[in-house]
Simulated assay, not measured.
Amino acid sequence: MDFQQVLTLIIIAAILIVLAVLFTFIPVMLWISALAAGVKVGIFQLVGMRLRRVIPSRVINPLIKAYKAGLDVKTNQLESHYLAGGNVDRVVNALIAAHRANITLTFERAAAIDLAGRDVLEAVQMSVNPKVIETPFIAGIAMDGIEVKAKARITVRANIDRLVGGAGEETVIARVGEGVVSTIGSSETHKKVLENPDSISHNVLSKGLDAGTAFEILSIDIADVDIGKNIGAMLQTDQAEADKNIAQAKAEERRAMAVAKEQEMLARVEEMRAYVVEAEAEVPKALAEALRSGNIGVMDYMNYKNIDADTDMRDSIGKLSKNDHDEDDQQ
């Protein structure tokens, strides 16, 4: 192999490498597909997308789909939505679905809904085919104290104009639950709720609970109604138990006061006894002082002792008579 052949091979290899890099950087096949579909896209426009770090297929394929569906969507719109972090394919699918269903939906509105974090295609589908939201059992208490549990099915349709900034399903369920509880609570007896469960749906539906939400409530149907606990009787039982505990506490307080008063009286009696014992201890001293001073004589002292002995004898006889009387009573 001479030098000329080697040079030719090197040139061919270089051309192949350049073409490979060129076809990798410039999506020629995508450009050919767009031209075949009738979408006018320049090759340099695709190169510009590469330079702007936009994947051309993420923009051109949805553009071809929109063009075939008869939508007037510009390349710059799709590219700007992609750069903003939106899902271009989902927005185009939503626009096609809205166009087929005769629902007015502009690209700006669809892009705003998608960037807000909501599924714009699902919203369009929900506008055509309403969605049924089933609530858990919602408990309310009628005026007679009986707990009533109701489960509701809410038929909603997406409101395209309120999807951006509108409240979601959780808000709708919470508002319906509040309406069910208030309706049950305003019923005189639980029997009226059981007889006419549709009155709950009528009252709740008339309150305009879909205001400020991303949905339009079409109907509210009561799927099931159950009877719960007798809350009124339980409250009365608890109140009676509380009253009993209060009465017992007050009685214990009065008993404690009586015991304290009794202890106080016993303390006073013991104090008086101490005074008496102290006074009795002073009597011999006074007698001795009287004898020494001559205020009383020996005969006077002897008379005092005789009187004291006679008193002790009378006390002993009285105690014996009392014991005999108690024994007779026991027999």
Rank of each mutant, 00 (worst) to 15 (best):
A13V: 07
A242G: 02
V283F: 11
M29D: 03
S199F: 12
A116R: 07
V54C: 12
A112P: 05
Q125H: 13
I43Q: 12
A34Y: 06
N102F: 05
D310T: 13
I103R: 03
L35I: 07
I12A: 01
R162S: 12
D243M: 05
L19R: 10
A84I: 01
N93E: 14
E327C: 05
N196F: 02
L71W: 05
W31Q: 01
N306C: 01
M313G: 01
N245G: 03
I246K: 14
D72Y: 00
A116V: 03
V181H: 13
A288Q: 11
T24V: 04
I307F: 15
T106Q: 10
M29P: 00
R157N: 05
D89V: 00
I160R: 12
I200D: 08
P62C: 15
F44L: 15
G297V: 08
A256N: 10
F107D: 07
D243W: 01
I64W: 00
L194S: 05
A258C: 06
H99E: 08
S293P: 01
A36G: 05
D300M: 00
E252T: 03
E79S: 11
D144F: 09
A267Y: 06
V164E: 14
L83S: 07
V193H: 13
H81C: 03
K261W: 03
T183H: 14
E241W: 00
L194F: 15
E278M: 07
A242F: 00
H202N: 13
R109L: 04
D221Y: 03
V21P: 03
V277W: 06
Q239V: 00
L266R: 14
M49H: 07
G208M: 02
E280M: 04
E253A: 13
D329W: 13
D310G: 12
G228D: 11
L71A: 02
A111W: 02
A158W: 02
N295H: 03
I217G: 10
I222S: 05
N203R: 15
G145P: 04
Y67P: 04
L9K: 03
E270Q: 08
M313S: 01
I26F: 13
Y275A: 01
I141E: 14
A34L: 07
I307W: 14
I217V: 09
D114W: 04
K244W: 09
A150N: 12
G294M: 10
I138H: 04
A279H: 00
P27V: 11
V91E: 13
G38I: 08
A36H: 04
E271A: 15
V124Q: 03
M49R: 09
I133K: 06
D72S: 09
K319W: 00
D312T: 12
F44S: 14
Q5V: 00
G166W: 03
K244T: 08
K151R: 15
G38H: 01
I103S: 00
L83P: 08
F44M: 14
V18G: 00
K65F: 02
W31L: 08
G140H: 08
G232C: 11
Q263D: 12
V193M: 13
S201W: 08
E264C: 02
M49K: 09
L35M: 10
N295S: 06
E278F: 06
V180T: 06
H202W: 11
I154Y: 01
V225Q: 09
L163C: 10
D328G: 05
H325V: 05
V47P: 02
L7W: 04
I32M: 07
V41H: 15
L235I: 14
I217P: 11
M1E: 12
V28G: 07
R50Y: 08
N93R: 08
E170C: 00
A242C: 00
V269N: 15
E270A: 06
